[in-house]
Design a protein around this nucleic acid. Sequence first.
DNA 1: AATGGATTCAACCGCCTGTAT
DNA 2: AATACAGGCGGTTGAATCCAT
Length: 300
Amino acid sequence: MIVMDSGKSRDGEGVTVRKGSWMAEEDHVLMDYVKKYGPRDWSSIRSKRLLPRTGKSCRLRWVNKLKPDLKIGCKFSPEEERVVIDLQARFGNKWAKIAAYLPGRTDNDVKNFWSTRQKRLARILKTPTQGKSHKSNANNPALEGDSCHHISSGGTEEIKMIHLPNLVNSNLHDHKPNKVQLEFTPTDKNKQCIAPSPPSQPLSLQHSFPQLPQTAPDLPILPEMQDLLVSELGDSNLLDMFGSQDAGDVVELPFFATGGPGRHCPNGDSGGLGTNDDFFDDFPMEALYYSESLPSPSDW
DNA sequence: AATGGATTCAACCGCCTGTAT
DNA sequence: AATACAGGCGGTTGAATCCAT
């Protein structure tokens, strides 16, 4: 395929294929198509000369931007973050699978969120002395030497970073449910919203996730590390996620507020943390372990 | 106000899988 | 059974934006 100027190329039949950002007119055409024919036969959009886009590109655009009920422009809420973190530990980098548990989120969203989070972690934990706000870590052995190496998560290799289990929880590698991991809550500059609850969500979403017993951290976070993390993240609550403050705490998996607003996060704020602990009481733990059999979001 | 680094996010690519022929 | 094709998925990239200095 020959890439042409202004993001266009030609396929083997000489049909121009446009690449790059989508224009509003293209979106309209695509939405009209989906209204007429449904979200399928993507390649026919091009063969019918409706759009100079590949079927893949059309599908991606629809799934990531045009599909109804997407939460566009909303930061991940703390609840959603916890879901991603937990499910990533459980499933690995199965973003589509994880996204299925997050109404209004796409695999791309989850992937981007995770990538951002990993980068942030790597930056914080790998090169703490290089940051402008970082103080010296000379007295913090946890940040030096071979503290940076690979961790394996869900069978996939992650970027170089501190061996989190050593900091957080030595059982992290078990990849079993109910392992509490660290969470980075966005600073207040990041607007967040609560996921809408579709009327017919699968059980795991309607009830979200049950309270998970936190495994006690095997190693406390060094005071120096706490300072570092707080200064970096601007959120002292973060340390709770490391279990450094009180090993007896219970960290819950998130649940989503029910009956929330629709897409686009109209209120634009965090929506607050779900704090209804009773929410989990009736939820069978087995549902988590057999979550693969849960109905697909496409069935909602 | 300018600048540079960090972050976010949209979109592409390549691989894999399922299905039709 | 073999092949072709479409769709799905995860990884990656680069532009736009944000933010601290």
